[in-house]
Design a protein around this nucleic acid. Structure first.
Lengths: 217, 217
DNA sequence: GTCTATAAGTTGATAGAC
DNA sequence: GTCTATCAACTTATAGAC
């Protein structure tokens, strides 16, 4: 029934919440259980399709308990997007940053793609409905995204300087690699046999092909 | 403020409805105005974030008028997704299908990417929230997607047979090209200077690089 | 800290006038 | 064919008991 490239499928089995220690350690156990439930709801049905009662029920709490830990539904959503972007950035920053542009780009894409496969549920929850955030919260996410973008831009520009990479389309190359990576959250599901690592290996190969002009042209 | 690779931005200017004749000609003028309004709403806020009153108001109709033309909000959403997939398929099928696998893949990706840039608002409305469709409607969309997928698979498999393309990762290549193409609906906006045609040219080049193994390996 | 009950407002959809 | 008025159900968030 499901197409291979779209991975069309419904049902709850596709999504999986991260371990509780994925979330801010300053939060209580109950608050982190709530975030685990919320991330499943948001990934499945988006912000507007999720009711606060669904979130509470998934964490085995009553309807009103959510509001003792978070100010609003938007605050729950923001905490998820914030945590997701901060964790992504931390994983990318853990890279030593040495070696040739080719080696560095492969490592960065591998980290980035593995993150989006492993945390595809978080990524999916973060990707859509960012417009519901307050102006201040939105600005905070955009700032984190700038930092993530700069890491990739830095490597691609360096590779373009020494003619390893396509210097004519730096923005296009960056956008394409980025599209490939984050779109993993759309199609990656539990029923696939592929591990996050194998997807990461394949996609870092593809990213290199995109960035590297063929010898003829 | 907006990142280049994410193209983060809010506001209504980003989205644009297709011409009325994009929709099923069997529908009345008012019904097609309604679809034009609905596609803007769904692209911006998703299915659950859109109220039937918003759709009606955008078409300069009263709240109840929607229900004289469509049975439900889901029926409006289905008509949009159906039209979007049918038009995409028709554009791909208009390709003559001759030439080498390289030439054919470039043409197909060009058509597909140009569609997703030109109709990025429709594509965005179609991409998310497909889970809200009834079982029958969902199955109809999945069938259309199978046909779209088969067109690309056909070319990539033929190219793999004559060693033009990477025979080891056909599914991966198809998925990557597909990700690149449909993700255009996420980032493509009116403020960019790039035309649908220039994006299509760049991305068909990238698709070829993904499908073609470098001479060394 | 978690619960139940409820307030205040919103939503999809329908009925009937013009 | 489009409008206004309205229903019944639902939703976020709060109040106050335990």
């Amino acid at each position: 029934m499901a197409t291979r490239v779209w991975n069309d499928q419904t049902g709850p089995a596709r999504y999986v919440a991260p371990d509780p220690d994925f979330w801010d350690p300053k939060l209580s156990d109950a608050a982190r259980r709530l975030l685990g439930s919320a991330v499943l709801c948001f990934a499945r049905n988006g912000f507007y399709g999720t009711r606060t009662r669904d979130i509470s029920a998934g964490a085995k709490l009553s309807a009103g308990s959510l509001y003792t830990m978070f100010d609003s539904k938007e605050a729950v959503f923001f905490e998820i997007t914030r945590s997701g972007h901060i964790d992504t950035l931390a994983c990318l920053n853990a890279d030593p940053g040495d070696g040739t542009p080719t080696e560095r780009l492969q490592r960065l894409v591998s980290i980035y793609v593995e993150w989006h496969a492993r945390y595809h549920t978080v990524g999916r929850a973060c990707q859509h409905d960012l417009a519901v955030l307050t102006e201040e919260h939105f600005a905070e996410i955009v700032e984190l995204r700038h930092q993530i973008e700069a890491i990739f831009r830095n490597v691609v520009e360096e590779g373009a300087k020494d003619n390893t990479f396509d210097a004519a389309d730096i923005d296009g190359v960056l956008r394409a690699i980025h599209s490939l990576s984050i779109d993993v959250t759309r199609w990656y599901g539990l029923d696939g046999t592929e591990s996050p690592q194998s997807i990461a290996a394949l996609y870092s190969k593809f990213a290199l092909r995109i960035a590297t002009p063929p010898p003829s042209s």
